[in-house]
Simulated scan of single mutants.
Amino acid sequence: MSSTEEQRTEAADRAILRLRGVSRVHGQGAAQVHALSGVDLAVLPGEFVAVMGPSGSGKSTLLTLAGGLDGVSSGQVLVEGQELGALSRKSLAAVRRRSIGYVFQDFNLIPALTAAENVSLPRELDGLPARKARVEALAALAEIGIADLADRFPDEMSGGQQQRVAIARALIGDRRLVLADEPTGALDSSTGEAVLAVLRARCDAGAAAVMVTHEAGHAGWADRVVFLRDGKLVDETGPAPVGALLGGRGDTL
């Protein structure tokens, strides 16, 4: 094995998230859809990875598999060395509560819970006393700049405010992997930049983040940009050449 290959192997072994030959197929026969095909990806501690590609390219599928929300058709997904497909439902739920923060496009807040209660819920489900979980929730809300919304219910908040609550829920506790599906979609530009700065700071502190985005400017916060097309990883690069790779089609893909 060459020194370069050895370095790559060592880096992959340190990865917080590792996808090995991951494929996801929906349907059967003529109706089969290959959402992902043979994707390999390793995300290291401290690394912020942006995922870009046309609609239907497999971006959201990659996140749902990485977060254990769906199972692979073939291949392996490992989070901090644990293969998700080999875990029991109880163990998988524990990994998702303790190790993975997930920001959904549609927020997935519970209407009957306040912002603080929505954010603290994963910690309470993991056995943390309610009072301590609330303290952590308030800190996460403050980190996103919405501590004043702690006791509001989702229907008392704007879409952008709900999105920030969802981001705070993904950041609470000592989660080492943050998965974000268009996390700034409902936010104005200045608030979106502030949220990206928080994700960047989490990575700088040793976590790993994978963010799906259509915005080249947002991808510029990442250490690496991964491009998907038709379920396959077709290219990856650092943030600087993103505009060139988009072929001069503006700021979105």
Rank of each mutant, 00 (worst) to 15 (best):
S2H: 01
S3V: 07
E5P: 00
E6C: 04
E10N: 13
R14H: 11
A15K: 03
S23W: 01
S23P: 02
V25W: 06
H26C: 08
Q28D: 07
A31K: 13
Q32E: 15
Q32N: 12
H34W: 15
H34F: 10
A35S: 13
G38L: 06
G38R: 13
D40P: 02
L41M: 12
A42H: 11
A42K: 14
L44M: 15
G46E: 04
G46D: 05
F48D: 12
A50W: 05
K59W: 14
S60R: 12
S60C: 14
S60W: 12
S60D: 10
T61S: 15
L62M: 15
T64P: 02
A66N: 06
L69I: 14
L69W: 09
D70H: 04
G71V: 08
G71C: 05
G75W: 07
L78H: 14
G81I: 00
Q82A: 14
E83F: 00
L84F: 00
G85F: 06
G85C: 01
L87V: 07
L92S: 12
A93V: 09
V95T: 11
R96I: 04
G101Q: 02
G101Y: 01
V103L: 04
D106S: 13
N108S: 01
N108T: 00
I110D: 01
I110A: 03
L113K: 03
L113S: 03
A116D: 02
L121W: 04
P122W: 03
R123K: 06
E124A: 05
A130G: 09
R131V: 05
R134Y: 01
E136K: 04
E136V: 00
L138A: 05
A139M: 06
A142N: 04
A150D: 06
A150F: 04
D151R: 03
R152P: 07
P154M: 01
D155Q: 12
M157Y: 12
M157G: 07
M157S: 07
G159H: 08
R164E: 07
A168H: 12
A168V: 14
G173T: 12
L177M: 09
L179V: 07
L179A: 07
D181T: 05
A186P: 05
L187M: 05
S189M: 05
S189V: 12
G192M: 01
E193K: 14
L196W: 11
L196D: 08
A197R: 15
V198N: 14
L199E: 10
L199Y: 10
A201R: 15
D204T: 12
D204S: 11
A205E: 15
A207G: 14
M211G: 11
M211S: 05
V212G: 07
T213A: 09
E215N: 15
E215M: 06
G220T: 02
A222N: 13
D223E: 05
L228N: 02
L228V: 10
R229F: 08
R229D: 15
G231C: 00
V234F: 10
V234Q: 11
G238P: 13
P239T: 12
A240W: 10
P241T: 03
P241Y: 09
A244W: 04
A244Y: 08
A244H: 03
